[in-house]
Design a protein around this nucleic acid. Structure first.
Length: 486
RNA sequence: GGCGACGUAGCCAAGAGGAUAAGGCGGGGGUCUGCAAAACCCCUAUUCACCGGUUCGAAUCCGGUCGUCGCCUCCA
């Protein structure tokens, strides 16, 4: 397996330290709804994790929740609630978003506010080693104490200074020094520390948590490309300075960013579509196919046309996975291994999901072809479902609100008189069922009988009326099947 | 200003020196069907932004031009 490592800027052979892959992905700051840019990132790392498991690795996956930060505090103050209340609310929303996108939960979701002791321990260690210094109740990391600072972003301290927008660094020794511990301002949530009341800076929690839950060296650390600098650069500086161990992370993986129209989708620009909004419009499988049809390191632009295309593709895979009218027939000769190998080969090369998906579509075509020829392709269907699952595709029908019974009852009573025409008995009003399945059974049976009598105009009327109600009919060799219109 | 990525069919998007330039969507034609739907079959890039160069051979490597985007500041 090869993975692209941001640190080396090359693809490298993936060799984790042990059988259990230690994987850390930067989580969210819950002060607002998560948008589909977040969705993209977590879908990407979900697939990476699923694929590692598919390849036989155990994975320990940790994702932080930054539940204290300026934006949370400001927002909570605006709303007149506590910052922990606000953070909890949006963290819960985030977990629902993830579940709805079929993203498997992390093994641990540490919260910054629950890890203060470890955070203080790390800061204290950095101070003791001369990598950090206190000033006015805050503590800063001394970037000049780390000789390879900038190695992840591939920039030198000098080049960062040139043209960088740097504010006059009152308390800081060097403009690039960054805060580890922020002195409390009145009215802000704070914790006691050796430097006085305060709260953690943004970067330090990731160092503390990864150290606590995964150890001194992680196999994989992931996040969006926008986190490379300064966040991940600073994590490296903190962690390696604290432990004295290099590297902090063996493989740094970063996904490209989702764009909306001309610009990056981001909270600060306000041009965002929330995950729940996207899910109202599209099936989670469609969103995943949209994301996975381009390589994870490339930027991707959210466009309704592309999502619609993904929706149609998802529908085809779904139909294939659940199809199969030729049961009990001769087994189709489909070389499943070829498809598995193609899938694996694609994924082994830095998670080549576009080609992995292409393999799925090719397999689906061959299954349908076998179907068409009257062969049974159960094994191949199973393989399709299994490989789809590695990409986190459920291939399940979207859960729609239940059909209204009333329109179906009305339809049944209005076609009652046609039943005689079809050679069937009319159904007494009292015996009209009130559950969808039974109603549909009677309606389709009536229509089938009408078709047998070649009463096409009546049969077609039933079909178009059902379409209005939200039911699509398909007349297959094995009879009429119905499903919810999407 | 510095660093980096990208420009492939109507749209989305793989491919990274050599065999017919994946796949999805859309469109056209056909098979099946009473008609549909679904599915299947065929067609839809003689060419990879443009200009030069290296090479027996370039969409792929090098240089330049144009264009788009990201990071350098909170961000997945």
């Amino acid at each position: 397996m090869k993975v692209y490592n941001t640190l080396s800027a090359h693809k490298e052979e993936f060799l984790p330290q042990g059988d259990e892959v230690k994987m850390y992905v930067c989580g969210i700051t819950p002060y607002d709804h998560s948008h589909i840019g977040h969705g993209m990132s977590y879908i990407v790392f979900d697939v990476i994790r699923r694929y590692l498991q598919f390849r036989g690795y155990k994975v320990k996956y940790v994702q932080n929740v930054t539940d204290v930060d300026d934006k949370i505090i400001n927002r909570a103050n605006q709303l007149g609630i506590s910052s922990s209340e606000l953070a909890e609310k949006y963290a819960r929303g985030y977990f629902k978003d993830m579940a709805d996108l079929n993203i498997a939960p992390a093994d641990i979701y540490p919260r910054a506010t629950q890890e203060i002791a470890k955070i203080i321990e790390v800061i204290q260690g950095l101070v003791n080693k001369g990598h950090a210094y206190a000033a006015q109740g805050s503590v800063y990391f001394r970037v000049r104490s780390k000789d390879d600072y900038g190695k992840l972003a591939h920039r030198s301290l000098k080049s960062m200074m040139a043209g960088a927008r740097i504010e006059a660094g009152e308390e800081k020794e060097h403009p690039m020094d960054f805060v580890l511990w922020k002195a409390a301002k009145p009215g802000e949530p704070s914790w006691p520390s050796p430097w006085g009341e305060g709260r953690p800076g943004w970067h330090i929690e990731c160092s503390a948590m990864s150290l606590k839950y995964l150890g001194e060296t992680l196999d994989i650390h992931g996040g969006g490309q926008d986190l490379i600098f300064p966040h991940h650069e600073n994590e490296i500086a903190q962690s390696e300075s604290f432990t004295g161990q290099k590297p902090f992370v063996k493989y740094w993986l970063h996904n490209g960013l989702l764009q909306l129209g001309e610009e990056k989708m981001s909270k600060s620009l306000g041009n965002l579509i929330t995950i729940q909004e996207a899910l109202e419009m599209y099936h989670a499988d469609a969103i995943r196919i949209f994301v996975l049809s381009s390589h994870y390191r490339s930027p991707l632009t959210f466009a309704d046309e592309a999502l619609e295309a993904a929706e149609s593709g998802a529908e085809r895979l779904r139909q294939t996975a659940h199809g199969g009218y030729a049961s009990g027939a001769k087994q189709a000769k489909i070389d499943i291994k070829t498809y598995r190998d193609r899938f694996t080969e694609a994924m082994d090369d830095d998670f080549g999901t576009p080609q992995a998906l292409a393999t799925l579509f090719d397999l689906a075509r061959e299954i349908n072809r076998a179907d068409e020829a009257g062969y049974e392709a159960k094994e191949a269907r199973r393989a399709l479902t299994e490989l789809a699952e590695v990409l986190g595709l459920t291939l399940k029908e979207r859960e729609l609100p239940p059909l209204d019974v009333e329109p179906l009852r009305e339809l049944l009573s209005s076609i009652n008189k046609w039943r005689q025409l079809a050679g069937l008995k009319e159904i007494p009003l009292k015996e009209t069922p009130d559950d969808v399945a039974a109603l549909m059974e009677l309606i389709t049976a009536t229509r089938s009988a009408l078709r047998d009598k070649e009463q096409w105009q009546y049969a077609d009327k039933i079909r178009s009326r059902l379409e209005e109600i939200g039911v699509t009919l398909e007349d297959t060799p094995k009879g009429t099947v119905w499903r919810r219109k999407r």
